[in-house]
Write a protein that binds this DNA or RNA. Structure first.
Lengths: 139, 139
DNA sequence: CCTTTTATTGTACTAATTGTATCATTGTCA
DNA sequence: TGACAATGATACAATTAGTACAATAAAAGG
Protein backbone atom coordinates (compact mmCIF):
# COMPACT_ATOMS: atom_id res chain seq x y z
CA UNK A 1 0.00 0.00 0.00
CA UNK A 2 3.01 2.28 -0.35
CA UNK A 3 5.72 3.34 -2.74
CA UNK A 4 4.79 1.43 -5.82
CA UNK A 5 7.24 1.42 -8.68
CA UNK A 6 4.57 2.56 -11.12
CA UNK A 7 5.66 1.23 -14.47
CA UNK A 8 4.24 3.29 -17.29
CA UNK A 9 4.65 2.83 -21.01
CA UNK A 10 4.68 5.96 -23.05
CA UNK A 11 4.17 5.75 -26.77
CA UNK A 12 5.42 8.69 -28.80
CA UNK A 13 3.51 7.55 -31.86
CA UNK A 14 0.19 7.23 -30.13
CA UNK A 15 -0.63 10.84 -30.83
CA UNK A 16 -1.82 11.32 -27.29
CA UNK A 17 -0.07 13.96 -25.21
CA UNK A 18 2.28 12.56 -22.62
CA UNK A 19 0.31 13.99 -19.75
CA UNK A 20 -2.81 12.27 -21.03
CA UNK A 21 -1.01 8.96 -21.32
CA UNK A 22 0.31 9.29 -17.79
CA UNK A 23 -3.09 10.16 -16.41
CA UNK A 24 -4.84 7.41 -18.32
CA UNK A 25 -2.41 4.74 -17.27
CA UNK A 26 -2.51 5.69 -13.63
CA UNK A 27 -6.26 5.64 -13.73
CA UNK A 28 -6.36 2.25 -15.39
CA UNK A 29 -3.87 0.84 -12.92
CA UNK A 30 -6.17 1.99 -10.19
CA UNK A 31 -9.15 0.34 -11.82
CA UNK A 32 -7.14 -2.85 -12.27
CA UNK A 33 -6.14 -2.90 -8.65
CA UNK A 34 -2.45 -2.39 -9.34
CA UNK A 35 -2.77 0.87 -7.47
CA UNK A 36 -4.89 1.09 -4.36
CA UNK A 37 -6.41 3.88 -2.32
CA UNK A 38 -3.81 5.33 -0.04
CA UNK A 39 -0.90 4.48 -2.29
CA UNK A 40 1.63 7.20 -2.68
CA UNK A 41 2.54 8.02 -6.24
CA UNK A 42 6.11 8.94 -7.17
CA UNK A 43 6.97 12.60 -6.83
CA UNK A 44 6.55 14.62 -9.96
CA UNK A 45 10.32 14.88 -10.25
CA UNK A 46 11.00 11.20 -9.66
CA UNK A 47 8.44 10.03 -12.19
CA UNK A 48 9.59 12.67 -14.64
CA UNK A 49 13.15 11.47 -14.41
CA UNK A 50 12.06 7.89 -14.87
CA UNK A 51 10.04 8.77 -17.94
CA UNK A 52 12.66 11.21 -19.26
CA UNK A 53 10.11 13.95 -19.27
CA UNK A 54 9.81 17.40 -17.74
CA UNK A 55 8.34 17.28 -14.29
CA UNK A 56 5.72 19.83 -15.24
CA UNK A 57 4.30 17.29 -17.62
CA UNK A 58 3.90 14.84 -14.78
CA UNK A 59 2.47 17.61 -12.64
CA UNK A 60 -0.08 18.28 -15.32
CA UNK A 61 -1.14 14.65 -15.38
CA UNK A 62 -1.41 14.68 -11.62
CA UNK A 63 -3.47 17.85 -11.75
CA UNK A 64 -5.96 16.25 -14.12
CA UNK A 65 -6.38 13.26 -11.84
CA UNK A 66 -6.61 15.56 -8.84
CA UNK A 67 -9.45 17.49 -10.44
CA UNK A 68 -11.21 14.20 -11.00
CA UNK A 69 -10.64 13.46 -7.33
CA UNK A 70 -8.80 10.31 -8.19
CA UNK A 71 -5.66 11.44 -6.45
CA UNK A 72 -4.88 14.06 -3.85
CA UNK A 73 -1.80 16.17 -4.49
CA UNK A 74 -0.37 18.07 -1.57
CA UNK A 75 2.32 20.66 -1.92
CA UNK A 76 5.32 19.80 0.19
CA UNK A 77 4.17 16.25 0.81
CA UNK A 78 3.35 14.24 -2.24
CA UNK A 79 0.41 12.73 -4.08
CA UNK A 80 -1.81 9.92 -2.95
CA UNK A 81 -4.56 7.81 -4.40
CA UNK A 82 -7.91 8.68 -2.90
CA UNK A 83 -10.92 6.52 -2.44
CA UNK A 84 -13.02 6.19 -5.52
CA UNK A 85 -16.74 5.76 -5.52
CA UNK A 86 -16.79 2.08 -6.41
CA UNK A 87 -18.80 1.73 -9.60
CA UNK A 88 -19.95 -1.74 -8.68
CA UNK A 89 -21.69 -0.45 -5.60
CA UNK A 90 -25.38 -0.34 -6.19
CA UNK A 91 -27.35 2.85 -6.05
CA UNK A 92 -29.17 1.51 -3.02
CA UNK A 93 -25.97 0.99 -1.05
CA UNK A 94 -24.78 4.38 -2.14
CA UNK A 95 -27.87 6.04 -0.75
CA UNK A 96 -27.67 4.06 2.42
CA UNK A 97 -24.16 5.26 2.98
CA UNK A 98 -25.30 8.84 2.58
CA UNK A 99 -28.09 8.30 5.06
CA UNK A 100 -25.69 6.83 7.58
CA UNK A 101 -23.21 9.61 6.99
CA UNK A 102 -25.86 12.25 7.47
CA UNK A 103 -27.19 10.68 10.63
CA UNK A 104 -23.75 10.51 12.13
CA UNK A 105 -23.20 14.14 11.26
CA UNK A 106 -26.48 15.35 12.71
CA UNK A 107 -26.16 13.27 15.85
CA UNK A 108 -22.72 14.65 16.44
CA UNK A 109 -23.90 18.21 15.90
CA UNK A 110 -26.78 17.75 18.33
CA UNK A 111 -24.46 16.22 20.85
CA UNK A 112 -22.43 19.40 20.67
CA UNK A 113 -25.57 21.28 21.57
CA UNK A 114 -26.45 22.84 18.25
CA UNK A 115 -30.03 23.39 17.25
CA UNK A 116 -31.72 22.10 14.15
CA UNK A 117 -31.75 25.64 12.85
CA UNK A 118 -28.01 26.10 13.37
CA UNK A 119 -27.21 22.83 11.70
CA UNK A 120 -29.25 23.43 8.58
CA UNK A 121 -27.94 26.95 8.34
CA UNK A 122 -24.38 25.72 8.55
CA UNK A 123 -24.98 23.14 5.84
CA UNK A 124 -26.48 25.78 3.58
CA UNK A 125 -23.60 28.18 4.12
CA UNK A 126 -21.05 25.49 3.55
CA UNK A 127 -22.61 24.27 0.33
CA UNK A 128 -22.94 27.83 -0.89
CA UNK A 129 -19.33 28.76 -0.28
CA UNK A 130 -18.29 25.57 -1.94
CA UNK A 131 -20.25 26.38 -5.04
CA UNK A 132 -18.76 29.85 -5.16
CA UNK A 133 -15.29 28.43 -4.93
CA UNK A 134 -16.07 26.10 -7.82
CA UNK A 135 -17.33 29.00 -9.91
CA UNK A 136 -14.17 30.95 -9.22
CA UNK A 137 -12.14 28.02 -10.43
CA UNK A 138 -13.82 28.24 -13.80
CA UNK A 139 -13.25 31.89 -14.47
CA UNK B 1 -7.35 15.29 34.42
CA UNK B 2 -3.77 14.35 33.57
CA UNK B 3 -1.75 12.44 31.00
CA UNK B 4 -4.39 11.45 28.51
CA UNK B 5 -3.41 9.00 25.83
CA UNK B 6 -4.63 11.34 23.10
CA UNK B 7 -5.63 9.11 20.23
CA UNK B 8 -5.43 10.94 16.94
CA UNK B 9 -6.24 9.71 13.48
CA UNK B 10 -4.20 11.16 10.69
CA UNK B 11 -5.42 10.75 7.14
CA UNK B 12 -2.77 11.17 4.53
CA UNK B 13 -5.36 11.46 1.80
CA UNK B 14 -7.33 14.22 3.45
CA UNK B 15 -5.33 16.95 1.79
CA UNK B 16 -4.87 18.72 5.10
CA UNK B 17 -1.35 19.20 6.44
CA UNK B 18 -0.48 17.00 9.36
CA UNK B 19 -0.04 19.90 11.72
CA UNK B 20 -3.53 21.12 10.86
CA UNK B 21 -5.01 17.69 11.45
CA UNK B 22 -3.33 17.46 14.83
CA UNK B 23 -4.49 20.91 15.86
CA UNK B 24 -8.03 20.32 14.65
CA UNK B 25 -8.39 17.03 16.42
CA UNK B 26 -7.05 18.30 19.70
CA UNK B 27 -9.42 21.23 19.48
CA UNK B 28 -12.39 19.04 18.75
CA UNK B 29 -11.48 16.67 21.56
CA UNK B 30 -11.53 19.64 23.87
CA UNK B 31 -14.93 20.72 22.61
CA UNK B 32 -16.21 17.20 22.98
CA UNK B 33 -14.98 16.93 26.53
CA UNK B 34 -12.45 14.22 25.81
CA UNK B 35 -9.81 16.70 26.85
CA UNK B 36 -10.39 19.00 29.79
CA UNK B 37 -8.88 22.25 31.03
CA UNK B 38 -5.67 21.53 32.88
CA UNK B 39 -4.94 18.30 31.05
CA UNK B 40 -1.36 17.85 30.05
CA UNK B 41 -0.79 16.99 26.43
CA UNK B 42 1.96 14.59 25.40
CA UNK B 43 5.35 16.15 24.82
CA UNK B 44 6.05 17.12 21.27
CA UNK B 45 8.54 14.30 21.00
CA UNK B 46 6.27 11.67 22.51
CA UNK B 47 3.33 12.52 20.31
CA UNK B 48 5.59 12.76 17.29
CA UNK B 49 6.93 9.29 17.92
CA UNK B 50 3.46 7.94 18.37
CA UNK B 51 2.28 9.48 15.12
CA UNK B 52 5.50 8.64 13.27
CA UNK B 53 6.04 12.28 12.50
CA UNK B 54 8.78 14.81 13.06
CA UNK B 55 8.43 16.54 16.41
CA UNK B 56 8.55 19.93 14.77
CA UNK B 57 5.30 19.06 13.07
CA UNK B 58 3.70 18.48 16.44
CA UNK B 59 5.33 21.63 17.78
CA UNK B 60 3.75 23.55 14.94
CA UNK B 61 0.32 22.20 15.78
CA UNK B 62 0.86 23.12 19.42
CA UNK B 63 1.99 26.60 18.43
CA UNK B 64 -1.20 27.14 16.45
CA UNK B 65 -3.33 26.11 19.41
CA UNK B 66 -1.18 28.18 21.72
CA UNK B 67 -1.73 31.27 19.60
CA UNK B 68 -5.45 30.63 19.85
CA UNK B 69 -5.07 30.39 23.64
CA UNK B 70 -6.48 26.90 23.59
CA UNK B 71 -3.37 25.39 25.09
CA UNK B 72 -0.40 26.80 26.94
CA UNK B 73 3.03 25.58 25.93
CA UNK B 74 5.86 26.15 28.34
CA UNK B 75 9.44 25.52 27.42
CA UNK B 76 10.98 23.00 29.75
CA UNK B 77 7.67 22.07 31.35
CA UNK B 78 5.18 20.82 28.83
CA UNK B 79 1.89 21.81 27.27
CA UNK B 80 -1.44 22.03 28.98
CA UNK B 81 -5.00 22.74 28.05
CA UNK B 82 -5.77 26.27 29.09
CA UNK B 83 -7.45 26.39 32.46
CA UNK B 84 -10.28 28.83 32.04
CA UNK B 85 -11.31 29.39 28.48
CA UNK B 86 -12.91 32.83 28.31
CA UNK B 87 -16.58 32.50 27.37
CA UNK B 88 -16.10 34.07 24.00
CA UNK B 89 -13.33 31.57 23.28
CA UNK B 90 -15.42 28.58 24.20
CA UNK B 91 -18.31 29.85 22.12
CA UNK B 92 -15.93 30.39 19.25
CA UNK B 93 -14.61 26.86 19.66
CA UNK B 94 -18.11 25.53 19.65
CA UNK B 95 -18.94 27.25 16.40
CA UNK B 96 -15.67 26.31 14.79
CA UNK B 97 -16.25 22.71 15.68
CA UNK B 98 -19.59 22.81 13.89
CA UNK B 99 -17.97 24.35 10.83
CA UNK B 100 -15.29 21.68 10.81
CA UNK B 101 -17.82 18.93 11.36
CA UNK B 102 -19.96 20.21 8.51
CA UNK B 103 -17.04 20.48 6.16
CA UNK B 104 -15.95 16.96 6.90
CA UNK B 105 -19.47 15.72 6.30
CA UNK B 106 -19.91 17.53 3.01
CA UNK B 107 -16.50 16.58 1.73
CA UNK B 108 -17.18 12.98 2.50
CA UNK B 109 -20.55 13.10 0.80
CA UNK B 110 -19.03 14.66 -2.31
CA UNK B 111 -16.32 12.08 -2.29
CA UNK B 112 -19.03 9.43 -2.46
CA UNK B 113 -20.28 11.19 -5.55
CA UNK B 114 -23.38 12.89 -4.23
CA UNK B 115 -24.50 16.22 -5.58
CA UNK B 116 -25.10 19.36 -3.62
CA UNK B 117 -28.82 18.86 -4.12
CA UNK B 118 -28.79 15.32 -2.81
CA UNK B 119 -26.79 16.33 0.23
CA UNK B 120 -29.03 19.20 1.24
CA UNK B 121 -32.13 17.11 0.64
CA UNK B 122 -30.78 14.37 2.84
CA UNK B 123 -30.01 16.80 5.63
CA UNK B 124 -33.49 18.23 5.44
CA UNK B 125 -35.14 14.82 5.53
CA UNK B 126 -32.99 13.69 8.38
CA UNK B 127 -33.67 16.75 10.49
CA UNK B 128 -37.36 16.48 9.79
CA UNK B 129 -37.64 12.86 10.79
CA UNK B 130 -35.69 13.60 13.89
CA UNK B 131 -38.06 16.32 14.89
CA UNK B 132 -41.03 14.03 14.36
CA UNK B 133 -39.43 11.37 16.47
CA UNK B 134 -38.93 13.88 19.24
CA UNK B 135 -42.60 14.83 19.08
CA UNK B 136 -43.65 11.20 19.29
CA UNK B 137 -41.53 10.75 22.36
CA UNK B 138 -43.54 13.42 24.13
CA UNK B 139 -46.96 12.02 23.43
C1' DC C 1 19.58 22.40 52.50
C1' DC C 2 22.01 24.38 48.80
C1' DT C 3 24.62 23.96 44.62
C1' DT C 4 25.80 21.61 40.58
C1' DT C 5 24.83 18.50 37.05
C1' DT C 6 21.85 16.07 34.05
C1' DA C 7 17.60 15.19 31.73
C1' DT C 8 13.46 16.82 29.71
C1' DT C 9 10.85 20.03 27.24
C1' DG C 10 9.70 23.54 23.90
C1' DT C 11 11.97 27.06 20.42
C1' DA C 12 14.49 28.88 16.53
C1' DC C 13 16.60 28.51 12.49
C1' DT C 14 17.73 26.15 8.47
C1' DA C 15 17.66 22.62 4.92
C1' DA C 16 15.41 19.32 2.03
C1' DT C 17 11.53 17.76 -0.42
C1' DT C 18 7.40 18.44 -2.58
C1' DG C 19 3.86 20.56 -5.68
C1' DT C 20 2.50 25.28 -8.12
C1' DA C 21 2.66 29.23 -11.17
C1' DT C 22 4.31 31.61 -14.94
C1' DC C 23 6.36 32.26 -19.01
C1' DA C 24 9.35 30.68 -22.94
C1' DT C 25 10.14 27.35 -26.52
C1' DT C 26 8.88 23.86 -29.72
C1' DG C 27 6.17 21.55 -32.87
C1' DT C 28 2.08 20.60 -35.58
C1' DC C 29 -1.51 21.54 -38.55
C1' DA C 30 -4.94 24.32 -40.98
C1' DT D 1 2.91 31.28 -41.58
C1' DG D 2 0.09 31.88 -37.81
C1' DA D 3 -2.38 29.94 -34.02
C1' DC D 4 -2.58 26.78 -30.63
C1' DA D 5 -1.35 22.87 -27.88
C1' DA D 6 2.41 20.48 -25.62
C1' DT D 7 6.49 20.61 -23.27
C1' DG D 8 10.44 22.74 -20.90
C1' DA D 9 12.84 26.16 -17.74
C1' DT D 10 12.80 28.81 -13.83
C1' DA D 11 11.32 30.78 -9.73
C1' DC D 12 8.25 30.13 -5.92
C1' DA D 13 5.51 28.40 -1.86
C1' DA D 14 4.16 24.88 1.50
C1' DT D 15 5.27 21.11 4.39
C1' DT D 16 8.24 18.41 6.91
C1' DA D 17 12.83 17.14 8.76
C1' DG D 18 17.46 18.14 11.01
C1' DT D 19 20.26 20.46 14.32
C1' DA D 20 21.45 23.37 17.87
C1' DC D 21 19.73 25.92 21.71
C1' DA D 22 17.27 27.74 25.96
C1' DA D 23 14.29 27.13 29.92
C1' DT D 24 12.71 24.30 33.44
C1' DA D 25 12.64 20.39 36.37
C1' DA D 26 14.78 16.56 38.52
C1' DA D 27 18.67 14.25 40.36
C1' DA D 28 23.12 14.08 42.50
C1' DG D 29 26.80 15.62 45.63
C1' DG D 30 28.44 18.11 49.20
Amino acid sequence: MEEKKLTLNLDIRSGLPIYTQIANQIQSQLVNGILKPGDQLPTVRALAQELRVNFNTVARAYRILDEERIISTQQGRGTYITEIPPPEVSERLRRESLVALTQRFINEAFRLGFSEREVSQMVRDNLKSMKEAAVNDNE
